[in-house]
Amino acid sequence: MNDTASAAPSAPSGRAQRIAERTRGENWKKPPRRIETSECITCDTCLRSCPEEFGAIFDIGLDVVIIPELCSGCPACVLECPVDCIYLDEDWTPTGESVWNHIELTAGGAR
């Protein structure tokens, strides 16, 4: 019997798994970040500074948003934001279906 033929395909890991499951990393202790859209100048600096393994920041319509399920709470975006409009989101709510549909459409390519 060929071991490779009987091996099941591997499950997605990391960011792809969080997108598939729509959940935050189990070991993430910090709350996710959020962007205060009324203060944001839509420069996309935060989007470009978000580490690829998280890829939590998206342009959705005219707003730049952080998807809490993909955000580890690291300060990379905060350190780069020129207008200081990114805050901890202690009371985050799950991301809505329409946003997940956008993420799934863009997950294969560049953010």
Rank of each mutant, 00 (worst) to 15 (best):
G73W: 13
L62E: 07
K30S: 09
S72Y: 15
K29S: 11
E104Y: 02
I86V: 03
S6N: 10
A110K: 14
P94Y: 10
A76R: 13
L88E: 14
W28F: 15
H102N: 06
A7W: 00
S6I: 10
E36C: 04
D84G: 10
A7C: 03
A56N: 12
D63C: 10
N2D: 14
T45H: 08
C81G: 06
Q17S: 09
P32L: 06
G55E: 05
I86Y: 01
R24M: 04
T95S: 14
I86C: 03
T37P: 02
R33C: 02
I66D: 00
T45Y: 08
W28P: 01
T45I: 09
C71W: 07
I103C: 00
L62A: 06
P12D: 01
V78H: 11
Y87L: 13
R24N: 03
E26S: 06
E97S: 07
P68H: 08
R34L: 13
H102S: 07
P94V: 02
N101M: 03
D91R: 15
G55L: 04
R34C: 06
G108N: 08
P32D: 01
G25P: 00
T42D: 11
C85H: 10
N27C: 04
I60L: 09
E21G: 10
R24A: 06
H102R: 04
D3R: 12
G73C: 12
Q17T: 00
R18Y: 04
S10V: 00
G109T: 12
E53R: 10
Y87R: 11
W92A: 15
N27E: 03
I103H: 02
A76L: 13
R33A: 05
A16R: 14
T93N: 14
D59V: 10
A8T: 00
G61H: 08
L70N: 05
D59N: 13
T45D: 09
A110R: 12
C81D: 00
I67R: 06
S38I: 07
T106N: 15
D91V: 08
C81P: 05
G61P: 11
S38K: 09
W92T: 08
I57T: 11
S13D: 05
C81V: 01
I19E: 00
W100Q: 05
N2H: 08
E90Y: 12
E69G: 14
A7M: 01
I86S: 02
V64N: 06
S10E: 14
R24K: 09
E104L: 03
C85W: 11
L62F: 05
L105A: 14
I67H: 05
R18C: 01
T4E: 06
V65Q: 12
C74I: 14
G25C: 07
C71T: 11
C43F: 08
I67G: 02
D59H: 07
S10F: 00
E80R: 04
G14D: 01
P31V: 09
R34A: 10
E39S: 02
V83R: 11
P75Y: 12
L70V: 11
I41L: 07
A16E: 15
R24P: 01
A5E: 10
G55W: 12
E97Q: 04
A8R: 00
N101Q: 11
C40G: 07
D89I: 05
V64C: 09
D3L: 09
E97G: 02
R34P: 01
I86M: 05
N2P: 15
D89T: 04
H102E: 08
K29N: 06
H102Y: 05
S38N: 08
S10P: 05
T45W: 11
L47G: 05
T106R: 14
I66M: 12
R48S: 10
E104P: 00
P75H: 15
